[in-house]
Computed example of a mutant assay.
Amino acid sequence: MDRKELAAFLRSRRERITPADVGLPAGPRRRIPGLRREEAAQLAFISTEYYTRLEQARAPRPSHEVLAGLARALRLSDAERDHLHHLAGAPPAPAPGPSREVRQSILDLLRRLPQAAAIVTSAAVEVIAWNDLAAALMEDFSAVPRRDRNLVRRAFLGPDPGGRRLFGVSDLDEFRRGSARRLRAVAARYPADPEVAELVRELREGSPAFARLWESHDVAAAPVMTKTFQHPLVGPVTVNCDVLDLADRDQQVVIYTAVPGSPSEQALRLLSVIGTQRMDVPT
């Protein structure tokens, strides 16, 4: 526990919050910036004496419950909350499972890529956000159950055995190897998450190919630079794959772009007009 740094950090966070931020009246005699110590203590549900000792670097190590109260009272960001725990000598507990909440700025980014297909995947390789072109190129994810949006499950178990499996991608075997390795690392990061455990159990029991890959204990996945989608309407679409890691959410943004001037770029432009409508079946 770094008492001096913890004290300075608490004081700096308290002084940046105005009474109005937390629904308190400012009052006519307020002479200090931010909240008073007694106000911060009240919001954190701890005694003013104990909070004062924390800011004076004289208090014993706070419990996880106290740290949670301080983070809530001082409106700490995720990074600030982790920093608070480390200063207190009590590293934050790992997240119980992969986050499925996508930042609004990332959702806005997907919409601003009209000539690129883009998806966001969770740590467990579930598609949790996508733009219109990704829906046209791969599948309208809004029209399928959530369990069928998991790309590892799709790669090994269907849901369309004998069909075009995983959107007709050219690198299915490579994707299977990489996703199995990624899922093994995810299972180690989230050992208490029931969905991850159930996904691994289902894959091991339902797919001999996955079971063999799982038993290899490999965890490093090679990046995929290009792939080709065999689209039923526009034919083969070869795209470059760029992956952006969102470390704070343990998510990835996967962006598919075609070489400028190529037939695949023309196919993507056509798909951006067609959208998810089916033109290969009678109406």
Results as ranks from 00 to 15, higher is better:
L84V: 05
S77R: 05
D171V: 09
L244R: 03
P114C: 01
H85G: 10
A41L: 02
A57E: 06
E195W: 00
A134E: 03
P60W: 07
V237L: 03
I106N: 09
E265Q: 15
R11G: 07
E39Q: 07
L183V: 02
F229Q: 03
S272E: 03
S47Y: 06
V273Y: 08
G69F: 03
T257Y: 04
M225L: 15
R103T: 01
E15L: 05
R249M: 06
W214A: 09
G178P: 02
A222S: 12
S122N: 03
S216N: 07
D2K: 00
V219E: 15
A7C: 02
S170D: 12
P282V: 14
V196L: 07
A88E: 12
R111M: 09
L172F: 05
I17W: 03
D250H: 07
E80T: 08
R149S: 01
T52D: 10
V200G: 08
R13E: 13
A95H: 10
L244T: 12
R176N: 09
A192Y: 01
G34V: 11
A90K: 10
G206Q: 03
R146D: 15
D173V: 12
P282I: 14
S77I: 04
V186W: 02
L87Y: 04
A40V: 06
C241N: 12
P33C: 14
P91F: 01
T238F: 00
L199A: 10
D248A: 13
V281N: 04
P96H: 00
N150F: 08
R154Y: 10
R53H: 13
Y256D: 03
R100K: 13
L270T: 15
D160G: 10
P236C: 09
A143I: 10
E139G: 06
V259G: 05
L24N: 08
R269L: 06
L183G: 08
P33R: 11
P98Y: 00
P159T: 13
G97E: 11
R3C: 07
V224W: 02
S142T: 10
I119Q: 07
V125L: 15
L87G: 12
R153D: 09
T52S: 11
L70R: 05
D108R: 15
V234N: 01
L110K: 06
A116N: 11
E215S: 13
M225A: 15
L24K: 06
V196C: 08
P208T: 14
F210R: 00
Q42R: 11
P25N: 01
N240H: 15
L113G: 09
V254R: 08
A40N: 02
D242A: 15
V125I: 09
A180G: 05
E38Q: 10
G89D: 09
R181F: 14
M225Y: 11
R31C: 12
D248L: 05
R100I: 08
P94Q: 07
G69E: 03
E101H: 14
R184D: 14
G162M: 02
D132I: 03
P91V: 07
V125P: 10
L172N: 05
E215G: 14
D171T: 13
G178A: 13
P96M: 01
R177K: 11
A79W: 00
